[in-house]
Design a protein around this nucleic acid. Structure first.
Lengths: 206, 206
DNA sequence: TGTACATCAGTGAACGCGCGTTCACTGATGTAC
DNA sequence: TGTACATCAGTGAACGCGCGTTCACTGATGTAC
């Protein structure tokens, strides 16, 4: 019944460590989300089954189902932001830093398509406060690295903020379209990313 | 109760015109889809309420709920393709023809965001045969009009097919991201479209 | 060291709800004689 | 022209299901005396 199929009889948490269940719930919800691909399929009872606990137990940590979904979104966006910034950290060449960040963006979307969808194509994702803040920070990072590329002579951008918007549009297309249209004859992903970077960010591609 | 709020007592169709109900069902389903914003909220019972008929009546025209959803997708994609091709027809300047088609693409997405989403960001939309065919045709049209722009000296593209892919990625971003992120400070839509066209299609923007 | 008690992480049964789908039916309308 | 009948577009009641949520409870573990 469990999504992960490694469900063993769950041991009751020792006293004082009931908070452990909270983290287990969020992790289980994310597994259910990716296994089903649809936010609506992430039911409170389904999460409880995946955790190995009865449904009412979840109410010890969340007021209702929507609070669990919001926690999932918050945690997933944090992980997404970390994936992107980690990929960029330590790379001094600004054009390579930009490329690494964009690659991490797209790879996250391919590895966890349903999670990417819940983060970026919900009706109003920025209604979740954590999303608005994280998104703002990531966008600023994008603007700065494009500006770095300009300063280093790798990009012909005359308006890094405007070009960051255009780049984000293309990145989102690259992240979202191929998983939804697997029968379309997509070019190689790395080639596509280089084309997007050279066009949207006016980056010289070596 | 009805989404459109103009529901009057429905008159039974005269004999031989029961087929009228089929079209009513699809239209009602599309209203429910846009009103709720979510495919999962388009329930068979909800559609029946919107039509003004009991739920079992729908089984006279569709085998089950999923068949209604597929009919909605098929009809919506036809309407989308018509909107784009109509916008382009009669325009001789190829760069204006390209711009008009892209504008129609994006406007459709803004006017009917849930419908656009169901057409392009479903798990596997191209599993619906009508979608695969229509999408293929529209993409070919995009390649051709970019080639026309090159021939007329308006575009520096060296590979219209490859650039059509990049343009589609950006168009999708432009169509999908702003409705999902209304708090982001988006530039003016027309400006954004011109930037996308000049970058992705290497179009000279006047 | 032993025992009464409080705490706490859950359980188990139950609720009302909307869903998709089935089934037997109804009642108006056209058609055959 | 009148009447019996077939057709057909629906209706109304019912089903089993999974859902979110509530409630009273249980039983293990730590704590106070």
């Amino acid at each position: 019944m469990s999504v992960s199929n490694v469900q063993t009889a769950r041991m009751r948490n020792p006293r004082g460590e009931g908070g452990q269940l909270r983290a287990d719930i969020i992790r289980a919800a994310r597994r259910v989300l990716e296994a089903s691909g649809r936010e609506e399929a992430v039911t409170l009872r389904g999460i409880a089954r995946e955790v190995g606990v009865t449904a009412p137990a979840l109410y010890g940590h969340f007021a209702d189902r929507s609070e669990i979904i919001e926690a999932v979104i918050g945690e997933a966006f944090g992980e997404f932001a970390t994936a992107v910034t980690d990929a960029m950290s330590g790379i001094t060449d600004p054009s390579e830093r930009l490329r690494a960040g964009c690659r991490a963006y797209v790879h996250f979307a391919y590895a966890q398509p349903a999670t990417y969808r819940i983060l970026f194509t919900r009706q109003q994702p920025s209604a979740v406060p954590a999303v608005a803040a994280h998104a703002q920070g990531l966008f600023q990072l994008l603007v700065e690295v494009i500006a770095d590329c300009v300063a280093a002579g790798f990009s012909g951008s005359r308006d890094p903020a405007a070009d960051a918007v255009v780049l984000w549009l293309s990145l989102h297309g690259l992240a979202a379209l191929p998983p939804s249209h697997p029968r379309f004859p997509w070019p190689d992903e790395a080639v596509l990313l280089d084309q997007v970077l050279s066009r949207s960010a006016l980056l010289d591609v070596g």
